[in-house]
Amino acid sequence: ARCQGVVCAMKEAFGFIERGDVVKEIFFHYSEFKGDLETLQPGDDVEFTIKDRNGKEVATDVRLLPQGTVI
């Protein structure tokens, strides 16, 4: 199932997405972002798939959504 959220933090090689369905942040590695990383910034709406890696939830297949998609 695809989830939606808003990019809330960006570091050197990874970032965090504030999920739209639950009050929780989820980790994503930049290699999982399908698009131009140069244009990705905090506040952007994205959709993603949640996978379990070593007992921790991570966002994979992260894709940009049109602004205003995530309420």
Rank of each mutant, 00 (worst) to 15 (best):
A13K: 08
E38C: 08
Q4M: 14
I50Q: 08
G55W: 04
D61S: 05
N54G: 15
T39Q: 10
K56D: 06
E32V: 00
R53W: 10
K51R: 11
Q4R: 07
D45T: 12
V62N: 00
G55C: 11
T60D: 03
V70G: 15
I26D: 01
Y30H: 07
V7D: 00
T69K: 10
D61V: 03
L40D: 00
R63F: 07
R2I: 13
V7T: 01
K11D: 03
E12G: 09
N54K: 03
A13L: 09
E57R: 08
F28N: 02
T39G: 13
V46W: 00
F28T: 01
T39E: 14
G43C: 01
T60M: 06
V23N: 14
K24Y: 05
E25I: 10
F16T: 12
T69S: 14
E25A: 12
F48E: 02
Q4A: 05
V6R: 13
L65H: 11
R2Q: 15
V46N: 01
G15W: 00
G15Y: 01
V62E: 02
E32N: 05
D61E: 09
V22W: 04
L65D: 04
L64V: 13
L37R: 09
V62R: 00
V46A: 01
F16G: 04
V58N: 07
E47S: 13
A9K: 05
V46D: 01
C8S: 15
G5P: 00
I17Y: 03
C8V: 12
H29Q: 13
L37E: 03
C3W: 04
E57G: 06
K51G: 12
V62S: 02
P42I: 12
L64N: 03
F14K: 03
G43P: 00
H29I: 06
R53I: 12
I17M: 01
K34L: 09
C3Q: 15
R2P: 01
L65Q: 12
A9Y: 04
I26K: 02
T60W: 02
V70Y: 12
D36G: 06
V22Y: 07
V6M: 13
E57Q: 10
G5M: 02
I17S: 00
V6W: 08
D45L: 10
L65W: 04
E18M: 15
V7S: 03
T60V: 06
K51C: 13
V70H: 12
R53Q: 08
E38P: 08
G15E: 00
T39S: 12
V23E: 15
R19V: 10
G68H: 11
T60H: 05
A9V: 04
G20C: 07
E38D: 14
F33Q: 00
R2T: 14
G35E: 03
R19Q: 09
Y30D: 02
I50H: 00
T39M: 10
D52Y: 05
V58K: 03
D21P: 10
E47L: 07
K11W: 04
F27A: 12
E32C: 03
L65F: 13
L64G: 09
A1E: 11
A9C: 04
Y30W: 01
G20V: 11
V23A: 15
T49M: 13
F48P: 00
F28M: 04
I71N: 12
F14G: 13
K24M: 09
E38W: 09
L64E: 04
R53M: 09
A59W: 00
V62C: 02
A13F: 10
R53D: 14
I71S: 14
Y30Q: 04
H29Y: 14
Q41N: 10
T69G: 11
V62F: 01
A1Q: 06
A13N: 13
R19M: 10
A59P: 02
K11F: 08
E32R: 02
R63Y: 07
G20F: 07
G5D: 03
Q41L: 07
D52V: 11
K51T: 10
G35H: 03
F33C: 02
V70P: 14
T60R: 04
A59G: 04
T60S: 07
V6C: 07
V22F: 11
F27S: 09
F48C: 00
G43M: 04
D61K: 01
E12S: 10
L37C: 07
V23C: 11
S31F: 05
Q4W: 06
F16L: 09
L64C: 07
R53V: 13
L37I: 13
G68K: 10
I17D: 00
L40T: 01
E47R: 03
C3S: 15
A59M: 00
F14S: 07
G68D: 13
L37M: 12
E38S: 14
C8Q: 15
G20R: 14
V70Q: 14
I26L: 09
G35P: 01
E32T: 02
G20I: 11
F14Q: 07
D61H: 05
R63A: 11
F33N: 01
A1C: 13
